[in-house]
Design a binder for these strands. Structure first.
Lengths: 205, 205
DNA sequence: TCTATTTTTGACCACTTGGTTAAATCATTT
DNA sequence: AAATGATTTAACCAAGTGGTCAAAAATAGA
C-alpha cells in the first residue's frame, strides 16, 4: 500500500490514453503502452485485467470530460440565447485543451455503438426539455421556425467538426500550420456563436 | 484472360470495401475479407499484393467518390449563392447514398495524415479561387464580413458531421430509428442551405 | 531483523496475424 | 488431346498478439 501503487496505475493510464487516442483500440498494442509507461507488460494486466478493461477505463475518462459541461448548461435556468453562447464557448474551449478526444470518442462509438446505450443511461435525459425551450422561442417569434433538432445538431457540428477533421482542414486551408489553425479555432468561439445567431434569430425591425 | 478474372477482383474489392469500412484498416482481417468474398485467402494476395495495397485501393475509391463533385462546383462559373446551394444539395445526396464513407475516410486520414498530401497533389488547387470569390462578395456588401474560411468550414461541417456522428445523433435525438433519421437527413438538403444563407447574407432593406 | 504482503519482472504460451508456396484446377490455343 | 498459361486452393510459416505464471524485488508490519 505504498504510493507507487497509485503512481504506476496513473502512469499506465497516462500511457494508455496516449496510445489509444493515437492508434485506436484495434491499432494499439499492449507492449507499446507498457513501453510508453516504462514498465513491464505483465503489470498492465496486474492493474487492469485485460486490454478491453484498460481501454474502457481510458474511453470512459475521455467521454466524461465533455458530458458534465453539456448537462450543466442544459439543466441551467438561463434564457436560450445565453445557454447557446455559453455552450459554444465552453465546448470549444474544452476541445482546444483536449483536441484529440472528439475524434477518438466518435470513432470508437461508431465502431461499437451498443456501448453508447450504456453510457447514456445516466445522462442527457434533459435533452427533451432543452428542445422544448427552443420550440417555445420559435412559438414566441424570437427564432425562425426550424426543426429544433436541426439547430441543435448544427450547433454540435460547428463546434466539433473542426476538431474531428483537423488534419484535413489544417492541410487544405492552413498549409498544415498548427499555430495558425489554433488561432483559427480560438476565433471560432465567437465566430460560431455569431454564425448561429444570425442564422436562427429573427431580426427586429 | 477469362472474365472470371475481373469477376473475382470485383468480388474481392466489394468484400474489402465492406469489411474495411466496417472495421477500419487495423480492425479488418484478411481472412474475413476472403470469407466475405467467398474465396481463398491466398487469392487476395494474388490480385492485391498485400493488405496495405488492398486497403489503398478501397480507400482511394472511397475518397474519389466525393472529390470530383467538389472540384466541379469550385471550378464552375456560377455565382456564389448558386454554387453554395448546388454544393450542399449534391454533397448531402452523395453522402445519403454512401453514408459510411465520410467516417471511414475521416478516421483513416486522421490515422495516416501523410497520405493526404499524396492525395491532394492533383486536386483542390482551385480552393484559393473560390475563397477569393467569396471575399469579393463580402467586399461588395452581399455577404457579412466574416473570414471566408470560417464560412467554407462551417458549410463542410454542417454537411458532413451528421454522417460522421450518425450513431450518436440517431440514438440521442431519434430514438435510434434509422428511417426517421434518413428523413431528417433528406430535409437537411434545404435546411442547411437556408441556415447558411440566413447566417451570412446581408438582408436587403 | 525476520516475516508476510504487495509490486514488478522475465520467460513463456496458445493463438492469430499477414503472407508464401507448391500443387491442383481451369481455360485457351494448337 | 496435349501443352500452355492463368486462376484457385490447402497447407504452411515466421512474427506478432494478448495473456499467464512463478519467481524476484520492494515494501510494510512485527
Amino acid at each position: 500500500m505504498n504510493d507507487n501503487q497509485t503512481n504506476a496505475e496513473q502512469l499506465i493510464l497516462q500511457a494508455a490514453r496516449k496510445i489509444f487516442i493515437e492508434k485506436g483500440m484495434e491499432g494499439a498494442r499492449m507492449q507499446e503502452i507498457a513501453d510508453e509507461a516504462g514498465i513491464n507488460k505483465a503489470l498492465l494486466h496486474y492493474y487492469f485485467r485485460s486490454k478491453d478493461k484498460l481501454f474502457q477505463a481510458v474511453f470512459l475518462e475521455a467521454f466524461q470530460k465533455f458530458l458534465p459541461q453539456i448537462e450543466m448548461l442544459l439543466k441551467s435556468e438561463l434564457p436560450f440565447i445565453q445557454k447557446l453562447e455559453l455552450f459554444i464557448k465552453n465546448y470549444i474551449s474544452i476541445m482546444i485543451e483536449n483536441p484529440y478526444i472528439p475524434g477518438f470518442v466518435l470513432h470508437e462509438l461508431t465502431q461499437n455503438p451498443q456501448r453508447l446505450a450504456e453510457l447514456l443511461k445516466n445522462h442527457v435525459v434533459v435533452m427533451p426539455e432543452f428542445l422544448t425551450q427552443l420550440q417555445n422561442e420559435i412559438n414566441n417569434g424570437v427564432i425562425k421556425p426550424v426543426d429544433p433538432r436541426q439547430i441543435m445538431i448544427n450547433s454540435l457540428a460547428l463546434c466539433i467538426f473542426p476538431f474531428v477533421a483537423r488534419p484535413i482542414i489544417q492541410t487544405v486551408f492552413f498549409g498544415n500550420d498548427a499555430e495558425t489553425y489554433n488561432a483559427f479555432l480560438e476565433q471560432r468561439k465567437t465566430s460560431v456563436y455569431n454564425f448561429i445567431k444570425s442564422a436562427i434569430f429573427i431580426e427586429k425591425p
